[in-house]
Design a protein around this nucleic acid. Structure first.
Length: 440
RNA sequence: UCCGCAGUAGCUCAAUGGCAGAGCAUUCGGCUGUUAACCGAAGGGUUGUAGGUUCGAGUCCUACCUGCGGAGCCA
């Protein structure tokens, strides 16, 4: 037996009628006195095998009968198309080797609670549903990179240790290592992206992001992955067009490459098929009008006031008025970051845009056009009481060739949860880090 | 940080203030087409922790711990 020569379960269609060797783990087994049906899992799929007592050596039969869930085994047999089998193929086994007998695998085919499953996340990843979710995540990441790479963007990652906050200092993880000054884990690569966009024209960063907020909801992780494209010589309009093309491409790739997984997840694919540019655009003023109408109709409890930021129920209400993602733009500057560009006609409004996903998935993208004026940024930094020394390098970008530019950030986990149609984003990352959860 | 809900066998759950229970999992036995297989048997408990009320507490009260859901904040 060599380790390299074997067939993967997702390749079985090419081997019907011939003998193959499969290597994997026992997913589940049913057996009678003289026939057994072990289901083998190998990471690419699950296939049912058929073992007749008379077809294998007696010691092999005994070893197979003794297997518990997740026992490691290698099976040789003939591939047969069979309508009775889930997946369409079966293996008529003529030989097998059990590498490890397992008898106390914690995750049974019965239901389990969230706490138990999260404590066993390292094993939970093997189950069919989790496997499907993470395959979708893989495709989302692949689509993100393919789209940006093919659209002329250059990957230029931003640092994870940063000396100052992007937008404030209350929600950052402090790191005590760099002599003489405090460092923080990055909250956004935004400011660095503006530097790389001026170097490459179009750039993006893609990596982990950290928020020390005490958030305990299905939409929050303490450590999550964010992709942030940034374009020089770009306006809010360019940013919105990029966002809708970007999301349309991701949805199309998930539909095309992950149809099996979407079936496992019982995802209503018509929701994904609807994600096609152009997306509806709503001015903040009009979004507020919608919320006030919603309040009058009794659909919303609280009466929204112009100038505030949307809460989760507000986002859900706005997005429920459309069957596509909706782009809300021109927010009040007071509730947005200091670097946002202002509307020329109405300086109280920022040229920002949030993309709200349908079905209550909330804000998946946030971004906009950045301010170009050195003087304006000086004022804003003072107004927000930020340490100007820490932003001197950033201000250099306005001293040397300042041009209109903009971009956005997208949370990979929120996007993946939306694609999968699952409740909680903790299942969209292999090992979630949340408030009160750092293990496994 | 605030509000709400929960904690009983490895897991999922039941038990009017009155003997601690079931299904699954595990172990043993049976079964040649099973689909969360089925049938029979066995083992498995300091009811989250510490106090209190009571003749008697898994059940009622107080505090704490842990988890879940939500708010705020955000992607």
């Amino acid at each position: 037996m060599t380790l390299s020569t074997h067939t993967y379960i997702n390749q079985l269609a090419q081997h019907v009628g011939s003998e193959v060797t499969l290597k994997g783990w026992l997913y589940n087994m049913r057996s009678s006195g003289k026939i057994a049906f072990p289901q083998l899992r190998d990471g690419t799929g699950v296939v049912q095998c058929v073992v007749l007592k008379t077809a294998v050596p007696p010691e092999t039969w005994d070893a197979l009968k003794a297997m518990g869930q997740e026992s490691a085994l290698v099976i040789s047999g003939t591939v047969r198309a069979d309508e009775r089998a889930p997946g369409g193929f079966e293996i008529d086994v003529n030989n097998a080797e059990v590498l490890q007998q397992v008898h106390d695998y914690p995750i049974t085919p019965k239901e389990h609670g969230t706490e138990f499953l999260m404590d066993h996340r390292h094993l939970w990843l093997r189950s069919r549903r989790q496997h499907a979710v993470l395959k979708v995540r893989h495709t989302v990441v692949q689509a993100v990179r393919n789209f940006l790479d093919n659209d002329g963007f250059t990957l230029a990652d931003s640092p994870i240790f940063t000396p100052a906050a992007c937008e404030g200092t209350t929600t950052l993880f402090e790191v005590d290592y760099f002599e003489g000054e405090k460092a923080y884990l990055t909250q956004s690569g935004q400011l660095y992206n503006e530097a790389t966009a001026a170097a490459f024209g179009k750039s993006y960063c893609f990596g982990p992001t950290f928020r020390a907020e005490k958030s305990k909801t299905r939409r929050h992780l303490t450590e999550f992955w964010m992709v942030e494209p940034e374009m020089a010589y770009a306006t809010l309009e360019d940013v919105m067009q990029l966002a809708e093309r970007f999301l349309s491409y991701i949805a199309a790739r998930v539909l095309e490459d992950r149809s099996e997984e979407l079936k496992v997840l019982e995802r209503d694919t018509s929701k994904l098929e609807a994600i096609v540019a152009p997306f509806p655009r709503v001015h903040y003023d009009d979004a507020v009008k919608m919320l006030l109408e919603g309040h009058e109709r009794g659909a919303l409890e609280a009466k929204f006031e112009w100038g505030g930021d949307f809460g989760a129920p507000d986002e859900t209400y706005i997005s429920s008025q459309f069957d596509k993602p909706v782009m809300v733009h021109h927010y009040p500057a007071a509730i947005k970051a200091f670097y946002m560009a202002r509307d020329q006609e109405r300086p109280e409004l920022a040229l920002g845009v949030d993309v709200l996903a349908p079905e209550g998935y909330g804000e998946v993208i946030g971004g906009g056009e950045r301010a170009t004026s050195l003087e304006f940024l000086h004022e804003q930094i003072a107004l927000h009481q930020l340490p100007q020394e820490a932003f001197e390098w950033y201000l250099d970008l306005r001293r040397y060739g300042s041009v209109p530019h903009g971009g956005f950030g997208m949370g990979i986990e929120r996007c993946t949860a939306w694609m999968c149609g699952i409740e909680h984003i903790r299942e969209t990352i292999p090992f979630p880090r949340m408030l009160y959860r750092i293990r496994p």
